[in-house]
Each structure stands twice: as C-alpha cells, then as structure tokens.
Design a protein around this nucleic acid. Sequence first.
DNA 1: GATGAATGAGAGTTCATTCAT
DNA 2: CATGAATGAACTCTCATTCAT
Lengths: 205, 205, 205, 205
Amino acid sequence: MTEPELRPRKTPLQTRSKATCAAVLEAAARILEAEGSHALTTNRVAERAGVSVGSLYQYFPGKEAILAELIRGLRRDMVLTMRRAADLGREESLASTVELMVAAALEHHLTRPELARALERVEAELPVDAETRELKGELRNIVADVLAGHGIADAECVAFDLVALCHGLSSAAIEAGEKDINGLTLRLKRAVLGYLIAEPAGTGR
Amino acid sequence: MTEPELRPRKTPLQTRSKATCAAVLEAAARILEAEGSHALTTNRVAERAGVSVGSLYQYFPGKEAILAELIRGLRRDMVLTMRRAADLGREESLASTVELMVAAALEHHLTRPELARALERVEAELPVDAETRELKGELRNIVADVLAGHGIADAECVAFDLVALCHGLSSAAIEAGEKDINGLTLRLKRAVLGYLIAEPAGTGR
Amino acid sequence: MTEPELRPRKTPLQTRSKATCAAVLEAAARILEAEGSHALTTNRVAERAGVSVGSLYQYFPGKEAILAELIRGLRRDMVLTMRRAADLGREESLASTVELMVAAALEHHLTRPELARALERVEAELPVDAETRELKGELRNIVADVLAGHGIADAECVAFDLVALCHGLSSAAIEAGEKDINGLTLRLKRAVLGYLIAEPAGTGR
Amino acid sequence: MTEPELRPRKTPLQTRSKATCAAVLEAAARILEAEGSHALTTNRVAERAGVSVGSLYQYFPGKEAILAELIRGLRRDMVLTMRRAADLGREESLASTVELMVAAALEHHLTRPELARALERVEAELPVDAETRELKGELRNIVADVLAGHGIADAECVAFDLVALCHGLSSAAIEAGEKDINGLTLRLKRAVLGYLIAEPAGTGR
DNA sequence: GATGAATGAGAGTTCATTCAT
DNA sequence: CATGAATGAACTCTCATTCAT
C-alpha cells in the first residue's frame, strides 16, 4: 500500500496560484459541509472553484491532499486560537483560564460546524501526516503548559484527558443541535474543573 | 435525494439463511476493522463471507443497510451491557455504580476497538434510522435513571454530558493506543465524579 | 445463437398443473400490462402467481416461453373472433361483413389494450415460432376468403393490406387514448371500404 | 418512479466532442438494427463507437437518452422529408400530392428499415419527451394542412388516420420483406385515396 | 413434484486521473 | 500553464436459472 502524497504539489508564491489554491480549498470545504464527503469529487471541486481539473491537479497531487490541507488549516487555526487564549489567561485564576480556553475550543466547533465534523471523520480515515500530528501535540502542549503553570500534577496526561473530554462533549452537543452556547460553555467548564478538582482516583481506600 | 433503505430485506428464518446473513455481517465487520470503510465493497463483503453477491442482496438492500445493521447490533450490545451494570449497581454507592458503568462503557471500546471506531465514523455519515435513535435515547435514559436515583438534579442533561464526555475520553485514549485499562478506568471515573461533584457552574459570585 | 425453446415444457393434463400454468400466464400478463416488459422478471411472475420459481421452470423453459405462450394465446383468440365474424357475415353485404370484422379486430385492442400493445412489441423482438406464424397466416386467410367470396381480385394481397392498415389505425387511435369506439369503428370501415372501392392504382392514364 | 433524463448531457461545441457524440449515436444505431434493443448495452455502444464508457456518459445521461436522441433524429428527418414533399405538391392535384407524400413516408422505412422498426418499438416503451411529442404533432399538421388546402373536411382527424394507416401498412409490408417499392407505393396511394374518397361512413341509411 | 436460497455473469454508472490541444 | 475531453478500473445491483432440501 503506497501512501498517497498528502502535501500540496508546490507552495505557490505567485498571486494567481495562491488564489487558485485557495479557491480549490474553499470549494472543497463548501461541498464537504453542504453535502458530506461522499459528494466530494475532484471534478466537482474544480467546477465549484471555477478552475479546470487540470489546474487542480497542478496544485494538489490528489483528492486526499486537498482534504489533508483542509485538516491542517483547521488544526493551525485551533492551535492559534488556543495559544491566544492561553496567553490571555496567563495572569488569571485557573477558573478564568479554563473559561477562556473552553471558549476557544468551542469556537472551532461553532464557526463552521458541519465542516469541522466532516473533517474530523475524514481525518480518522486518512493516514496522519507529520504536520498534523505535530499540531495535535502542540495543542496538548499548550494546555499542559497552562496546567503545569497552575501546579497541576501529571499535566500531560491531564491535558490529554481534558482535550479529549471537551472534544467529546462539545461534538455531541453541537451535533445534537445545542444552541445555548453560554450554557454549553458552563457545562464544559464544569467538566474541566470537576476533573481537575477530583482527586486522582485509585488512591482511595 | 432518496434515502436508501437501511432495514434488512427479509428476516431469515431458516437455518441456512441465518448463517448467510451472519456471515455477511461478520465479513463486513472484519473488513471494516482491518481496512476501513473505504474498502468495504459489496463484492468484497460477499467474497469474504464465502457467499455470492446475489445472496448478499437477498438479505440487505445495499451496503448501507449492512453498516446500519452492524451499528444497531453494537448499540443493542451497549444498551444491554449498560443495563446490566446499572442493575448491578442498584444498591451500591454512587462511586461504585459509576465504576461499574464506566467499565461497561469501556468494554464496548475494548472488544473490537477498530470496529467500534469505524462504525462510529460511518454512523455520522449515515442517516440515522429509527431504531438506532431509540437505542441512543435508551442508553441515556439508563444513565439518567441511575443519576436520578442518587438524587442528582437535571439528570437528563447530566446524563447526556457524561455519556458524551466518557465517549470522547475513551475514544481518544483507545485511539492513542492506551493499553492500561485500569488506569483509563480511573481517569474516566475521575471525569465523571468530578463533573458530578463540581457545582453547576455559573452560580459563582 | 441457439434459439431458446419457446414451447411450454409439458402440456399439463392434471388439474393442478393446468392451474399453475394458467396462474403463471395470468401473472405475467398482469405485470406486462401494468408495468411493461422491463418489469417482467421470472421471480416476480412466480411470486405474483403464488408459485415458486422452481415450479415456474417446471412448466416453462424460460421467460421467453411464457411470453411466447401469451402471444399464441392472443393470436388464437384473434383467429377465433375473426372466424366467428366471418361466419356471421357469410350471407351479408360486403359493407356489413366489413363492419362485423372490423368490430372483431377492434375487440382485440379493447379487452386488454395495454397487454395487447406490450405483447406486440415483445413479439417483434422474439424469434417467431411456427404456431404463431401459422396463426397469422390463418387470420389473413379468413379475411382473404371473405374478400374472394365477394369477388375481390388479388384477395390475398388485399387481405394483407387491410389487416395491416386496420392494425395501424386502431393501434394508433387506442394509444392516443381514443374512447369513442363507435366513431373509431366508422373510421376503420371507411378505410377498408375506401381501399376496396379505390381502383387498384397504377392502372391510370 | 423517477423518470430518467432523456436529454443529452451537454451539447458539444468542439470538433472532438461532436465526433464522439456522433460516433456513439451511430454505434447505437448499428447495434440496434443488427441485434435489437436487448443487445444495446452502454459498454457495447461505447466499444463499437471506439470510445470509452466514460465518454459516452459525458454526453448522455444513460442508455435511454441515446435511444431518445436517435428517435428525435429520425422524427426530425421525417418532418423535414414530409415538409419538402408537401411543398413540392403545393400546386399539384390531390392524387399527385398524395403520391409525393406517400413516397416521403416510405423513404423513412427504406433507408434503414431495421433501425426504424427497432426505434419504433423502443419509442413505445420510453416516456415520450416534449420534443418528440411536438415532432409527431408537426408531422400530422403538415398532412392536415395539405388536406385542408384541398378542401377536405375534418382535416386533423383525417390526417391522424392517414398517417396511422400508412404507418401500419408500410411497417407490415417492409417487415414481411416486401421488395417491390413501386407496388407498395401504389397500395399506399390506394389506401389513402380510398379513405379520402369513401364517404365518411355512418351517414348511410 | 415443489420450494426458495444461492448463484454469478453482466448491466449501468461514477470518478480519480491523465494528456493532447 | 490552463483546459476539459477522454479514460477505464471499480463499484453497485439485478435477474435468469439451478439444485439441495
């Protein structure tokens, strides 16, 4: 099984190329959120992007590469948003910082919920490329750093759990059609702070 | 867009039929966990099941119906396991009951982790059929009943959150290759009990 | 290209067999007239006939044989009806006899119009079997005999033309949804008598 | 029952496209006349056209659309031929005009008899598209105009009958292997003029 | 004889990708 | 470089026919 190339073919420097590239990505995103991944065909993407299939293949080695790039884009955004939240919360109480970060995490599900959902599913079926893996690690590191800064033990593992648990909760809520974002933020905060407060179980007796 | 039929075509009563039907489902499951949903073609399923395509179509109106049936099977198992756990914990402390139920939830991710993951992704792309929706509600009801029995307020919403959060956490952990099941159980317990202990946020000052 | 067998497999003598046979034919007829020949599958015919596919194949060597039998049935009816009309008109004027025969011809299009149409199309795609060919000749002979009895020259050729022309006219009218059968009978009579009156062209100058 | 699309997918403007399109139609015609509609499969058409199936589907949404296009082509030809005949006969006697038009009608059966027959059968099984219906009306209008121009009453109904009757007669003759075209023309003329001469029946005592 | 589960060749159709223009 | 016509492997699904029960 030869892994398909997931990187763009060339990093376009010229203006026109960049525009084409962006148009392709945006077209793919729109199809993905409107009709799901089964409707994403290269021909349709090209058409929607106002570009010929040939041109599409000029910039992306294949369909998967487009998806991979969309995923990287989303992940980059997440890392950026999260880093900003972490920075803002640097001098704050743990509770406040958690609130900021939870809001940041939610943002990702709120701006283009269908796109986020679709990409998540796609991501699970695609071989993870190096950059994506790195970005995921980065995200957890940001959280871990914040936790460590507040003296929380075993920050890395806790960060992992908190990210996962937030992800599960917000995905489910958004998918269930939850509209009350404030309420959802509070529930996420409760989950996070609860986890942090609860004594690491297993110590008991 | 005509929704594809997701129910099996005939419920086989004879022995031979039942065997064929089961063979198809098992073959589909195996392909799914070994190669992912993109490798699941009706011809391959039939071949792997040692059955002709024609026979496959005698029992399932299409690929999607096979997937839907696998999903229903999994969900039925989950409900059963969870109900058993809830019953066992009837006279126990909240902490003990949580432990039982968390273990039950994990079981589902542990028996055939890849299959569970694949089906989850597939489920998100498929139109949900009535029975699946009902089974999901049932699961939350079981949890909500337990919570209510322990005097927890707003049991339904809390049940939703707990199920979602456990799901997120265990999926992520299993996917990350976590092998220490005891440890994972403890982390899940911590998340659940933490959420329950934490005062419903937003009340603060 | 081996011609498929178009004769029934056995001429059933027992009562039950005859019933099965008839049920199959009637089921096929019903499907044909309600949904067209593309919907005529052996499985559906069997089901509709309340018989197993196996039994169907006991009496007919294949799908085509069922169709061929239906065609023969229709042709036999036509010959019978037409012979009766010819007999009735034996002592009558030409005009009256023509009226009787035209009515007889129309009957065939009126009792089960859709079935007649469907079978006609099917017949054109099927290799003609001996009996059908004979029946068609028979029909023309009946007409030719009547014509000859009225002193018309070249009766065989004229019979051919009259049959064809009536067929064309009534098919088209029925297909166009004509409901006024009396009117249609008059038009057919006009066509037939007109043809007979008109001097064999080509003799002119 | 969703009606299949019968219009071509794109009207090809470039030279290459037009060639492909034409090749497909011609291949389909050849298969139809040589082996009948049951042998007309998209793969075979493509192969015979020296084109890939993909290309075929680029221009036609399916098998039926190819057939529909062939039918439209034939009908267009018929209308053209008939109009020309009607124009030629403008200053002539009724008998001469009839001769011209009868010859025109026959032409259609003579150039590619098998094709014409096959398409006729197919047409009866296909949902009629708008253009085809229009062309059929057009044909009758041409005839009706000629008749009206010669002072014939109820020209539309008569036109309908004449077209139908000619169709029936020539189809049957051609199918029966008639080779004497002059003779056939005379018989058609006799049928038409006879119908016109014969008093509209039903008036008689 | 009757049954109906099983068969599998083959039909229709799509879509990622290439390449002549 | 851009274009979009062409490609064809692969996929879903049907249905005439057989044969073990």
